[in-house]
Design a binder for these strands. Structure first.
Ligand SMILES: NC(=O)c1ccc[n+]([C@@H]2O[C@H](COP(=O)([O-])OP(=O)(O)OC[C@H]3O[C@@H](n4cnc5c(N)ncnc54)[C@H](O)[C@@H]3O)[C@@H](O)[C@H]2O)c1
Ligand SMILES: NC(=O)c1ccc[n+]([C@@H]2O[C@H](COP(=O)([O-])OP(=O)(O)OC[C@H]3O[C@@H](n4cnc5c(N)ncnc54)[C@H](O)[C@@H]3O)[C@@H](O)[C@H]2O)c1
Lengths: 216, 216
DNA sequence: GTAGAATCGAGAAATAATTCTCTACTAACA
DNA sequence: TGTTAGTAGAGAATTATTTCTCGATTCTAC
């Protein structure tokens, strides 16, 4: 099975939709059905069937006319494509409100991520356990990351110290950073940064609400 | 000051970038500078200056050649455009891990959102306080929302019950929903839904990491 | 004053993403 | 064994977004 060779990387829009399909497909799998078509998915998500077909195509799955896709095979195909089939170790920096919520979420290892430890600067937090994961002093992060070959870093510290924490991660050999602090972090080429900016999301929501108001 | 009349609504991409500019601008304001140009912002965020100029234009701000924009005026212009200048009341449903993190975040009221109460189904949680906000039984949500004219609903319940909770919010007159459950929720036309799907974000991160692996 | 440099703003061009169209295939059914 | 309807997949057309280009404006320095 030769993988599709993407001359251009898959568009971010497509990547963001694949997990949405994945979730729906898993719900359907539980009902016992064996196949699913793009039209059915499109109906359920109220979006365009052709778009779904193109999105799914990037994972390398093949469908059958009049039938659709084999449900289990499709789910697997998405998981392999997204890198969810191989679990990667992650360190989380900032065991505060948001960090604790992420640590308490026990589903990430189904989605390719295993948060193995948390780090904090606050001496009161260091040494405690948050949802079963030990909280270690932040100055241990780089060394341990290197030793344990941790690939992913999660930043849930306040924005002003996000860069400093990112630098620790990079020096520890982390190759991808999931950044929840609302600020840009600079990393060397080759390190992947995914920003999860809740304010962007809130901005979209409230602007649409305001715009709706203005129209009336 | 006549507002720019958007025949087409502002693109989601632009809306998502405005809060990022906003954050940078506030950092700059603290340093005491009075004006800022698109080139400076572009330099700092490593993106295109023309794009920033077009993004800022949707807010109605006017810049001056050779100078840039008045910093305070620009910040205000973004806030007004995004609807952050008027604070809206919000109810949060699901006072679990993620819900508590959001309740513990005391900055949202600077960004147009005031989470006034939380709701849960779990009798052990109902009656307690989470970060100063009372947790009320979920069956009170619709009635209270109507009475208090709550405009925004935040969903942090498990995916299988997200639709049911959304229905309560809609029947309570809520006009916009911030949905953290990884599932589609159906609402009548006119109600705005903003999905905050962490798995989409994670999918992008891990796929890029996998793709980088494959190249080497 | 005048020259020069930096920047905004508007429109054009290029690029990317989405949607449409058509063909070929598959299954169900008469 | 046709016949029909539903669907994947490929490519074209459309639409949206980003990037480029250029003229107009404003500040600074001489
Ligand atoms: N909680 C939310 O709902 C929410 C919403 C939007 C954005 N955010 C962002 O997420 C980040 C965390 O928010 P939070 O509410 O969890 O904050 P928090 O204050 O609860 O947690 C931050 C944690 O980081 C630790 N920390 C501080 N400096 C550190 C350092 N140099 N090294 C290691 N640890 C350090 C603190 O000790 C604390 O435990 C912030 O950047 C915030 O803007 C949070
Ligand atoms: N915690 C995370 O890091 C994280 C990450 C990604 C996605 N999410 C999503 O966020 C949502 C919440 O996650 P969580 O980790 O906070 O879960 P949680 O179990 O900690 O909290 C869920 C809360 O919802 C309450 N609840 C359940 N059914 C309810 C109902 N019908 N009405 C009102 N309240 C109800 C529960 O009592 C509980 O307090 C889930 O949809 C989850 O998929 C969470």
């Amino acid at each position: 099975m030769d993988e599709p060779k993407p001359l251009r990387p898959t568009s971010e829009a497509t990547l963001r939709r694949l997990p949405i399909y994945h979730h729906l497909l898993q719900k359907r799998l539980a009902t016992g059905i064996k196949t699913i078509s793009c039209s059915q998915i499109a109906e359920e998500l109220s979006c365009d069937a052709t778009q779904i077909r193109k999105d799914l195509a990037v994972t390398g799955i093949k469908g059958r006319p009049k039938v659709g896709y084999d449900l289990a095979a499709l789910i697997l195909s998405i998981e392999i494509f997204l890198g969810w089939s191989r679990v990667r170790k992650a360190f989380l920096a900032g065991a505060g409100h948001l960090g604790s919520a992420l640590l308490g979420y026990n589903r990430f290892h189904h989605y390719g991520l295993d948060i193995v430890a948390a780090f904090d600067r606050d001496p009161d937090r260091v040494g405690t356990k948050v949802h079963g994961r030990e909280v270690l002093p932040i100055n241990k992060l780089a060394g341990l990351a290197k030793r344990m070959r941790v690939e992913v870093g999660i930043i849930t510290v306040p924005a002003p110290v996000a860069q400093e924490v990112a630098d620790f991660m990079v020096s520890g050999g982390v190759r991808a950073i999931w950044n929840f602090a609302p600020t840009k972090i600079n990393v060397p080429a080759g390190v992947i940064v995914q920003n999860e900016d809740l304010y962007s999301s809130l901005g979209v929501l409230l602007q649409k609400l305001s715009a709706a108001h203005r129209l009336r």
